[in-house]
Design a protein around this nucleic acid. Structure first.
Ligand code: SF4
Ligand code: SF4
Lengths: 146, 146
DNA sequence: CGTATTTCGGACTCTGTTGTCTTAAATTAA
DNA sequence: TTAATTTAAGACAACAGAGTCCGAAATACG
């Protein structure tokens, strides 16, 4: 669909990581649990979280008592980190008109306006920590799933 | 691709309409000309411009000397109008986490931050007129195609 | 050791968008 | 009227993102 700044994979990943950050126990959480509570396909979520594991954001453990867990403190992980790990930098360099080979030289007529919004979104995502969002969800009883 | 706030169809339509607004002559411009100068597939562009014709933004004329032309003054058409005509309102209501059935009640933890950016983008697109952009392209020799 | 559990890895299908092609309808001009 | 041109309309192929499925590797536990 149009209007997707983030891929589904990325928003799924975000929801899972926030969910992990809300967890009290220090044990691994099985992906199956995450997928059922968040209402996301298990196999799909597995692949997404593998990317986050590769990126060093999560650690995983196979076998019984296994699962995934945050590799670093949730306060050190931003929304931006997750987006970069899953969607890559494209989300912050993508263009409105998508002209071929378009940087800032010989720009399209919407470049300045769009670049400003794009920067604001990037700054917002860098600002928001997974830890902060997890606390928001807990204290204000917000939603992460259906 | 991710990061696409606008579909390809929509950005093609925008480029074509701006291109039309730069035209001096009051005659119809064949879609074939537009497609070659902009580097867009003729048949694809045809379908997109048909949508704009249906939306009352363009008028079309079949046969020799035919083509498309702006239906109203370019100063009266905004980027927003084009986006709505082609991509629909989804671009301005789409969600970061895309939770099912999510309005503003029981929001996700990013709702406020995202809603603000979304509103800014919508306002920016309403502010920018096709006429203004066309003049920018002319005076500053900006790009609309390859 | 053997078994159950869980992540890992790849192959596959499904779906919506993008792009191509063919034919029909309208219009102009000779 | 006939021919050339151009949009209109729809069928179809190609592609990418999303989602499914199956088997392999690792690990805990009896
Ligand atoms: S000028 Fe800027 S916004 Fe426009 S297409 Fe190029 S990079 Fe994108
Ligand atoms: S809370 Fe707002 S931003 Fe988050 S998913 Fe719902 S509507 Fe979208």
């Amino acid at each position: 669909m149009v209007g997707d700044v983030l891929s589904k994979a990325c928003s799924y990943g975000l929801r899972a990581v926030i969910s992990l950050a809300m967890r009290q126990e220090s044990s691994y959480q099985p992906i199956r649990e995450l997928s059922t509570t968040l209402g996301i396909s298990f196999h799909f979520l597995t692949k997404i979280l593998q990317q986050l594991t590769d990126a060093g954001i999560l650690v995983s453990q196979k076998g019984p008592k296994g699962g995934v867990a945050l590799a670093v403190d949730a306060s050190r992980v931003s929304v931006y980190d997750i987006v970069i790990a899953i969607d890559g930098s494209g989300a912050f360099t993508a263009c409105i008109l998508g002209l071929p080979g378009c940087g800032s030289r010989v720009p399209c007529p919407l470049h300045e306006q769009w670049a400003e919004e794009r920067l604001r979104i990037e700054a917002m995502m860098k600002e928001e920590s997974i830890d902060g969002l997890a606390h928001e969800v807990s204290s204000r009883r917000l939603r992460l799933g259906p």
